[in-house]
């Protein structure tokens, strides 16, 4: 302990001698074991940024929504509530499948993991396909980005979410491919966990947007 050239390991910490004159009082500082590993903490940070991005868009939406006398504006098509409601259920179900994927990874059941990741991606793709079909119909009925601020907001908010779903599908595809090649084990499945974090964010965001843009 007396020489400073000794390589200290995490558990080989100097004795916590209370030296308030040096540390300014308080308990001695011990090395900290991370609560979350780097990857999960990094994804939490990223999701915090995503949250602020959508908060900006939703804030802009509310500025227009709250100051409007009539909403949706006259002569603009109504949004398809029923189909999108079903679509909401589809997307919500994919949050369950990705959750089950993590459960499978935790006990090392690679086959189940691969299957559940596949289900999740398929549900996400189905969601996108239905959204795309509805978009095509709405453009046909005359709701475009330039038809009104209402249309612009619809395509910007729902489109921003759609882009995040596409990003999630790419992410899922990579993890699916890794899982098939046996990349994950009982001890190391951080990649699946971070996928769940991102996908859950994308899914959880959707009911908020559905409620604001479609129902409110």
């Amino acid at each position: 302990m007396a020489t400073s050239s000794v390589a200290h390991k995490l558990d080989d910490v100097p004795p916590p001698a209370p030296r308030p004159e040096l540390v300014g009082g308080g308990p001695p500082v011990r090395p900290n074991m991370p609560l979350l590993n780097n990857a999960r903490l990094g994804v939490i940070m990223m999701l915090g940024a995503e949250l602020m991005f959508f908060a900006g868009l939703i804030g802009a939406f509310l500025v227009f929504r709250l100051s409007a006398q009539v909403w949706p504006p006259p002569f603009q098509p109504r949004l398809p509530l029923g189909v999108t409601g079903v679509n909401t259920v589809i997307l919500l179900f994919s949050a369950l499948t990705v959750h089950w994927a993590v459960g499978a990874a935790r006990v090392g059941q690679t086959a189940v993991l691969v299957r559940q990741l596949g289900f999740t991606a398929a549900l996400g793709a189905l969601f996108l396909a239905i959204q795309g079909y509805e978009w095509a119909r709405m453009i046909h009925f005359g709701l475009t980005t330039s038809s009104s601020v209402y249309g612009g907001l619809f395509y910007t908010l729902i489109g921003a979410h759609g882009v995040h779903v596409i990003g999630g599908l790419i992410w899922l595809a990579v993890v699916y491919w890794q899982a098939r090649r046996g990349r994950f084990s009982k001890k190391d499945f951080v990649g699946v966990q971070t996928t769940r974090m991102y996908w859950t964010f994308v899914v959880a965001l959707w009911p908020v947007l559905y409620g604001l843009v479609y129902l409110y």
Binding site: M45, G48, A49, E50, L51, M52, F53, F54, A55, G56, L57, A60, T144, T145, S146, V149, G151, G152, L153, Y155, T156, A160
Partner: peptide, 24 residues
């Protein structure tokens, strides 16, 4: 981390105003 995404959202809306015909 928390401020820049709001600028990104605003810039996206501005870009749509210029290029996609919106009028935010």
């Amino acid at each position: 981390l928390l401020a820049l995404p709001v600028l990104t959202a605003a810039l996206a809306m501005l870009l749509f105003d210029r290029m996609a015909g919106t009028s935010f």
